[in-house]
């Protein structure tokens, strides 16, 4: 078996890549995808902890995270479609109607 810290390190790497994607990219779609990557990284940590500690609760936590991720994707992409219909762009630097 691989060490548990290997899974936790992998989870940290996935999370950091997601953070970089969110900070660096300007496209709302890429930002949403990066958020999904971050949620995946957290899920890996949950499942690894559950598996190595012999506790099924880790799997259930990951399951709940997946549910929230599905809801987030549905609402986020619906908002994106509505936004694109309204403003013809999904570049976050051009979406400044709340700024004045």
């Amino acid at each position: 078996m691989v060490e548990p810290s290997a899974y936790l390190l992998l989870s940290a790497i996935l999370f950091c890549i997601g953070v970089v994607g969110v900070v660096m990219r300007r496209n709302v779609l890429i930002i949403l995808m990066s958020v999904e990557l971050m949620l995946n990284g957290v899920n890996v940590a949950f499942v690894a902890a559950g598996s190595y500690l012999g506790d099924v609760a880790g799997g259930i936590f990951a399951f709940m995270v997946m549910t929230v991720a599905a809801a987030e994707a549905a609402v986020g992409l619906a908002l994106l479609i509505a936004l694109y219909r309204l403003k013809e762009t999904i570049d976050v630097t051009e979406l400044r109607i709340l700024k004045w």
Binding site: S5, L8, A12, I13, V19, V23, M24, R26, N27
Partner: peptide, 28 residues
């Protein structure tokens, strides 16, 4: 090709390094 990868490159690298340092230290 809307996405421009050169946006905020330095803050992204800084945040990523600090976060990864903390997370990996805790993990190990």
């Amino acid at each position: 090709k809307i996405g421009n990868p050169t946006h905020f490159r330095l803050p992204a690298a800084l945040i990523c390094l600090v976060l990864f340092g903390v997370l990996s230290y805790t993990a190990v």
